[in-house]
Each structure stands twice: as C-alpha cells, then as structure tokens.
Amino acid sequence: MSDPVLSVKDLKTHFFTRAGVVKAVDGVSFDLAEGEIMGLVGESGSGKTVTGFSLLGLVDAPGRIVSGSVRLKGTELTALTDSELRSRRGHDISMIFQDPIATLNPMLTIGQQMRMAIDAHERLSARAAESRAAELLTQVGIPSAKERLRAYPHEFSGGMRQRVAIAIALLHRPAVIVADEPTTALDVSIQAQILFQMRDLARETGTAMVWISHDLAVVSSLASKLAVMYAGRIVEQGPTATLLRDPRHPYTAGLIASLPAMAAPGTPLTQIPGTTPSLLSLPAGCPFAPRCDRATDLCKADPDMTHQDNRGWRCFHPVTRTAEVPA
C-alpha cells in the first residue's frame, strides 16, 4: 500500500474549562489513503466533530491539541505556525459543515465568497477566478453556474447551498476533505444525491474524505472503512463491510442492532441502555463498561486496541459473530 495522505497518531484534544479538563479527543489514530472515504461514527458528544476540527487546527479556546500527530502528505500539521497552517487550510485540507444555511454569508454573493476562498491561496485574474468558480459549481451539479455566481445564498435551496459549500471546499483540489454531517440537514432524496456525488468526486479527483456522522446507515453506503468513536476514542475500526457484518466491540454491535432496518416491522427498535458519559468525569477503565452487558471486573482496566488483519477494537470481551448476530 502507498503512503497514506493523512495519518493521525494518538491525537489528543482537551478543553481546559473551569469545571475541569474535558478530554474531547483522547488518543485517536487512523490512516487515510488517497481517494479513500472513512466514516467517523459516534453519538453526540463522542468527540467526532472535535476530531474534525483538530485535523484542520481549528480548535477554539479553551481547547487545544495537547499531543499526538497529524501528518498530511508528509507534513506534520501540529508543528506548523498559525500562518503556515492557514495556507494549508482550504488548499490541502478543507472542511464542510452540517448546516449550509449557517456556513455561507447571507450578505455576500456566491461569486464573492468563492473569490475570497480563491484569493486566500492563489493570485488569479477576475476572469480566471470566475471561470474556476463556475467550473467547480458545474462539477457539483449546479446548473447555469456563471449566472448563479451573482446570486445570494438565500436564492438557493438547502441542497444547492450545500453543493456551493462543497464547491468552495473543492476549489483548490485538497488532498483531504473533512465532512461534518453535511447531509443531516437535508431532505432524504437530496441527501442520497449528494452522497453519491461526493463519492464520485472522491473517485475522480483522488480526494480522501473523513465523513463524520451519527448515522451509521448513511455512512456505510459511502465509506470504504469505518471508525466508531466513543467518549473521545476510536473503539473499533475496519473495513465497512467487515465491521457491519461482524462487529467486535459491543458498542458497534449495539449501534448496528439499533438500526431501524435491523428490526422486524412492528417491533420496538433496539436501544443501547444509558447515555454517553460526561467527558468531565469518565469512569476509570473502559468508558463503555457501565452500559455494557458483557462487562466484568476486567473492564476496570483500560483496554488497548487489539489488531487483527486490517481491523482493530478496544475491548476485553469482543463480540463474536456466532454469539451475537442472528442469522
């Protein structure tokens, strides 16, 4: 296998609040190859969005990256100065967000906003910048792009706005795009369109993606591999198909069992008991143990990542296929 474009090792991002230290991201590691899409799944508060912001060096105070490494195309991002990091953002790695209404500035035209993003990294003539912007809009599926450059965000539908945001993120052909639930706010039909378009774009341009979502169903149709986050850590990772068919971590198994598609029609949906623990007061040992029916005294210690083939999990009592998943 070739060198990964993005390699994250033991990344820790902590927030130093008055109430104490919140370990939002506490030892996350993964590799991403060119053109690869990885789904980063977890409940609200599991640290997936903070992981995304950490990759771009955009963690707001009182949070900061305390340790670990983020290597993008061989460059260590955590060692860069603010202005060096800025010149990478949008150029080598960019990000799209959940709510396209909130991300675009309502008072500037699409063209003006795209121009700003171009100017941040390149000196282009007005004409060249316009044709680049129009080209990108066409690529993400916006018709009559040249005229639309003069339109304001409120003149677009939600799906179209998200396409504009995607076009802005793609302007400089970044190696990696972090997508933070970009389809959650959209209609289901639009959601599917955008998902498949993103997959094609990734394939065509060789852009790798970290696709953050709380919706396992959405991610699994898109990503070639999955990482499941719980309480600031990746508790299980591996190829999507393997993970869905044969989950090892009880939390992953719970997520899969709670998918509506897994329930027989008319029966109540399966739930994982309890809620995500407060990151301020994590229990010692495995953070999932209080919600886990497989927990034993062994779980008072913190499990390490167990690696096997191309997958890994963090559990002393991994689920095995024959025992958990009914045929």
């Binding site: 955009l58 800025r86 953002r89 949008g90 990000m95 709510d99 991300t103 500035n105």
Partner: peptide, 18 residues
C-alpha cells in the same frame, strides 16, 4: 465569531484580517 460562517471561512484558509 462563533458561527459556522466564520468557521467555514477559516476552514477555507481565509486570513483573519479578511
């Protein structure tokens, strides 16, 4: 400054002054 508009602009590499 806390809105996604600003975060998105930062993610696009636009400088703080701009």
């Amino acid at each position: 400054m806390l809105t996604d508009t600003i975060k998105f602009a930062r993610a696009a590499g636009i400088s703080e002054g701009t």
